Computed example of a mutant assay.
Amino acid sequence: MTNIRVGMGYDVHQLEEGRDFWMGGIKLPATKGAVGHSDADVLIHAICDALLGAANMRDIGFHFQNTDNRWKGMDSKFFLKEVTRMIAEKGWKVGNVDCTICLEKPKIGPHIDAMKQAMAPLMNVTEEEIAIKATTTEKLGYVGREEGVNASAVVLIYK
């Protein structure tokens, strides 16, 4: 029998004028960017939490604390590659990743292929194993007011 597990991750960041906006390992054209200790890539952070959760290895904040200056301004692709290495040390491989980004703007659709290209090699999967969807909140709540962004991810890992 193949050993399989699923994990779920979620992350949210505030948006602020004049910041770079990183999503799925690429810089998006935007007037607002996410606020965080690292580059605040909400999608990668959600995927990392899903992978760590599936492997029963706590969460991204446990391994990469936002009080540690080593991670200040860090490219989140580093975290994704490192988390993939960490779960591989326990014998796990990534099967697939399914993500949803919740954001009013910019529109995510035109950037999905580039995000997949950026993240797939970090997780040792093909682009076909990564699904990225986007939605809005129809102008409701902090997302609708363009004050923040969130992302959720579900992953399957196997031995």
Results as ranks from 00 to 15, higher is better:
Glu89Gln: 07
Ala30Asn: 11
Ala134Gln: 11
Met119Thr: 01
Ser152Gln: 14
Ala50Pro: 08
Gln14Ile: 02
Gly36Lys: 03
Ala120Phe: 12
His13Gly: 02
Asp113Tyr: 02
Gly18Met: 12
Gly25Thr: 10
Ala34Asp: 04
Val143Thr: 09
Pro121Asp: 11
Ala120Glu: 10
Pro106Val: 00
Arg145Asn: 13
Glu146Asn: 15
Lys105Val: 04
Ala114Ser: 06
Arg85His: 14
Lys77Ser: 02
Lys139Asn: 13
Gly9Trp: 07
Lys107Met: 14
Val154Gly: 12
Pro106Glu: 01
Val149Gly: 05
Thr137Cys: 00
Leu43Glu: 08
Arg19Phe: 14
Lys90Val: 00
Ala151Leu: 02
Asp49Pro: 03
Met8Arg: 00
Lys72Trp: 09
Glu16Asn: 13
Ser152Val: 14
Glu128Asp: 15
Ile87Glu: 07
Met23His: 02
His63Phe: 14
Val149Leu: 03
Val154Arg: 03
His37Phe: 15
Lys159Trp: 12
Trp92Asn: 10
Pro121Tyr: 04
Asp68Ser: 08
Asp75Ala: 02
Ala134Glu: 10
Gly95His: 10
Leu140Met: 11
Gln14Cys: 04
Ala55Ser: 14
Gly18His: 09
Phe21Ala: 02
Ile108Phe: 06
Ala120Asn: 09
Gly9Glu: 11
Ala131Lys: 13
Asp98Tyr: 00
Ala120Pro: 06
Gly141Cys: 01
Lys93Gly: 11
Phe62Ala: 13
Phe78Ile: 05
Ile60Met: 05
Phe62Pro: 07
Asp59Ala: 09
Asn56Trp: 10
Glu129Met: 15
Lys116Arg: 12
Gly53Thr: 13
Ile44Cys: 03
His63Val: 11
Ala30Gln: 06
Ala134Pro: 01
Met123Tyr: 05
Thr126Phe: 09
Met74Pro: 01
Glu147Arg: 03
Gln117Ala: 10
Thr31Ser: 12
Ile108Leu: 10
His111Val: 05
Thr84Asn: 15
Val42Gly: 02
Glu16Gly: 13
Arg5Lys: 15
Cys48Ile: 02
Lys32Val: 00
Met8Cys: 13
Gly91Leu: 02
Asp49Gln: 03
Thr137Met: 12
Tyr10Thr: 10
Asn66Lys: 10
Met86Ala: 08
Gly33Met: 12
Asn3Tyr: 14
Ala54Ile: 07
Gln65Val: 07
Pro106Met: 06
Thr2Trp: 08
Thr137Asp: 00
Lys107Trp: 15
Leu80His: 09
Val97Ser: 05
Asp49Ser: 01
Gln65Ser: 15
